[in-house]
Design a protein around this nucleic acid. Structure first.
Lengths: 233, 233
DNA sequence: CGATGCGTTGATAACTTTCAAATTTAGTGG
DNA sequence: CCACTAAATTTGAAAGTTATCAACGCATCG
């Protein structure tokens, strides 16, 4: 048995209007029944760069899976500051909620295609298929683990946070030493709890230490992984 | 279906030797089947103040529930710094893992009694009882939500973190405006990602602002809840 | 070309840590 | 119950880190 979704609003109208502007990125291979089932049951919806996928306090009616592009979830504080809670790459699932409403907002970082699945459908599926039920539980556990790692990251110094971030993107984004950052400095800063100036400066100092090489602002090369891991402290 | 536990080591010998030194604190009322089942199936084990309950990288063979006292989970960084990831009060469950080994260590903050339940037993129970299965999922979701809130907390300024912490303890610890802090300043600091000196100074400034009153270092009175909430920003 | 968004760089200010010392509290034994 | 010792907390001054404010460079796009 899984939590019953609170079914309220339908698909957000502004989301339907948006169209992608670039070709899809390759979808990360998935080997689990949940992702496959979502792919079959869900509707693909395109989102323009910087457009909202869902907003804080809206009814959590859907579960989302990135098909192409990149998504951020975040919260805006009363003083206007923004904290990015998570980045989601192709193949990853986001928007899981345990109450009736979203506690975070979500936006497309790049033009993106997102699979939407009714939360009630996922719930029903989990009720009938123990494997799905377990995967939902495991997914939540992985998300918890990731959030715990973020707690451990956020108490470190700027250089350690940025070095960790670079390595995280390198590992999640795929293989190879050339990594593409889908998000601007501002997003990295809000993810790491720093300012964009500090992120820029630290990236520069990492390059000075020959740990990385900055080809363009969105493309960097890992030059010395073990050094980076040391700088993570 | 739930994750199969990796059964390896038995109960840690040093834990068995320890005896409580003070009377039990009242157990928070629980209205869920999981906690009740754990209470029935589990063995109560006493831990002395500052003694280890489990250690990082040990096989995660048990799930734990605080019966009395207070527990902290934490990680030690390579440079010796410690980050406390969670505090657990009577009635709360800790030690849930999704891999085979503990990713954190756990210690008793005060003398404590902890109920240990075999992870395999919880797994079996969840497999046979959908309600238990759901509660395990819900528990993980609450833990995730709590960890997310901590991410949002750790990017704020010292005063906001301390104000949030005071209010969190007030809400979790029970009713009333007189709150008892079970943990020393050092633990609060390591939980909030600050130094103990900063925690002490901020508490002093909160008292100066008549938001709180510090009776003793472990006992403070909420004087102005709404002001505290503002200072949380 | 000028406008705009994004990124870098520099100087200064604000905040937190670090190091040190004083003070209070708690635990223990007489 | 008091004195004594150790631990915890508070307080102060200086140093370090990051944020803030400001200017500049560099693309893209109309």
């Amino acid at each position: 048995m899984l939590p019953q979704p609170t079914v309220r609003a339908s698909v957000r109208p502004e989301a339907i209007r948006q169209m992608p502007q670039q070709a899809d990125q390759p979808v990360v291979a998935e080997h689990n029944a949940l992702a496959q089932a979502m792919q079959l049951m869900g509707a693909v919806m395109p989102f323009l760069r910087n457009s909202e996928i869902f907003g804080e306090n809206e009814p959590a009616e859907y579960v989302y899976r990135v098909q192409s592009g990149c998504v951020r979830t975040y919260k805006i504080f009363s003083d206007g500051r923004r904290q990015i809670v998570g980045f989601y790459l192709p193949g990853e699932i986001f928007g899981l909620e345990f109450g009736g409403e979203h506690t975070l907002s979500a936006e497309a970082i790049t033009d993106a295609k997102v699979v939407l699945v009714k939360r009630s459908a996922v719930t029903a599926l989990a009720g009938s298929d123990p494997a799905i039920c377990f995967e939902l539980y495991a997914l939540t556990g992985r998300e918890l683990q990731r959030m715990q790692d973020r707690v451990l990251l956020l108490v470190k110094k700027a250089q350690e946070r940025v070095a960790s971030f670079v390595l995280e993107v390198a590992e999640r984004g795929g293989s190879g030493n050339v990594i593409t950052l889908p998000m601007p400095r501002r997003d990295i800063a809000d993810y790491l709890g720093l300012t964009l100036e500090t992120v820029s400066r630290v990236l520069g100092s990492l390059e000075g230490a020959t740990a990385i090489e900055i080809l363009t602002s969105r493309c960097i090369v890992l030059r010395n992984r073990s050094l980076l891991k040391e700088l993570m402290s």
